[in-house]
């Protein structure tokens, strides 16, 4: 499942995963996951139904689902957990699915691409695919909430001391940098004007203090909070941070020797020039 809002992320996935030996299959009939916040707030049973329909399609094909987005994995994993746990919800969802000759059974597994890489492929496969190690590039990782929590459903990592993204970035040759607000929520799911901005600004200040060259993440919704978010903050609060926000598969693409345009970095509002220069220099050395 791909995040639709940011085609550059899909591009980065399509360019980098084949280098790790992954064959991508585009599935007919999928809808959006659906989103784990707004449609769920409207009607949870309908939200479960749409998610279950997607899972039923994967089940029919005997495929597991790989998502590139923290929101998609959150929705699909929670839907699976809920339907497997709550027979009433499952009966209602399957009553609806029966009308289109589909059934949710619960046989397909769901994972984010970073989990597939860590657990199935192994980080050595990442290291072997690197042509231009990102030596000297420091990355402040933003985990984002939905890939980690609740850990009893997500089964991805320790929600308080995660390492999966740090290890992924390190395998590319870059240096993950800790900062105080590494695990703070980006605030996007909060339906308020001010609160999300205060939260993102707290994170920017923390990253600025860490001195990292860029921010690295795997969630498109967080990306929007931080890339567009920096423009909003400089407009509303008069403070400019200029921290490039890079989707980790774009970073992987750069390390695999792709040009910035080939992973769509030119589409970002905060330009990554400083990081790109650093990569060029370390390639020369």
């Amino acid at each position: 499942m791909m995040p639709l809002k940011y085609p550059q992320m899909e591009l980065a996935i399509r360019k980098t995963l084949p280098n790790l030996g992954v064959e991508l299959v585009d599935v007919d009939g999928f809808t959006c996951c659906p989103d784990p916040i707004y449609f769920k707030a409207r009607d949870k049973i309908k939200w479960l139904t749409i998610a279950a329909r997607n899972l039923a399609i994967a089940e029919e094909m005997g495929l597991d689902v790989i998502t590139m987005c923290s929101g998609c994995i959150s929705t699909l994993k929670e839907a699976k957990y809920t339907l497997d746990e709550d027979p009433e919800a499952k009966a209602e969802v399957n009553r609806r699915l029966k009308k289109i000759n589909k059934e949710y059974r619960g046989t397909a597994q769901i994972n984010h691409a970073v989990v597939l890489i860590r657990d199935t492929l192994g980080l050595d496969v990442v290291k072997k695919s690197i042509k231009r190690p990102l030596d000297g590039v420091t990355v402040a990782i933003h985990y984002g909430c939905h890939i980690l929590k609740p850990s009893q459903i997500m089964h991805v990592d320790d929600a308080d001391y995660p390492s999966i993204l740090d290890d992924f970035v390190a395998a590319m040759g870059a240096t993950p940098l800790d900062h105080r607000e590494k695990l703070l929520c980006c605030g996007k799911g909060c339906m308020d004007e001010e609160l999300p901005l205060e939260m993102t600004e707290t994170i920017f200040a923390s990253i600025e203090e860490s001195g990292a060259d860029c921010m690295g993440l795997v969630c498109p919704t967080c990306f929007s909070s931080f890339d567009l978010g920096q423009i909003l903050i400089s407009r509303k609060k008069g403070k400019t941070y200029n921290i490039p926000v890079i989707y980790l598969f774009q970073l992987l693409g750069l390390a695999q020797g792709l040009e910035p345009e080939q992973v769509g970095l030119h589409t970002h509002r905060i330009k990554a020039d400083k990081v790109l220069e650093k990569i060029k220099e370390s390639a020369k050395a």
Partner: peptide, 12 residues
């Protein structure tokens, strides 16, 4: 309730 950030920390 609409101020909830949907971060799942409470669930955790």
């Amino acid at each position: 309730i609409w101020l909830c950030t949907n971060c799942y920390s409470c669930y955790e």
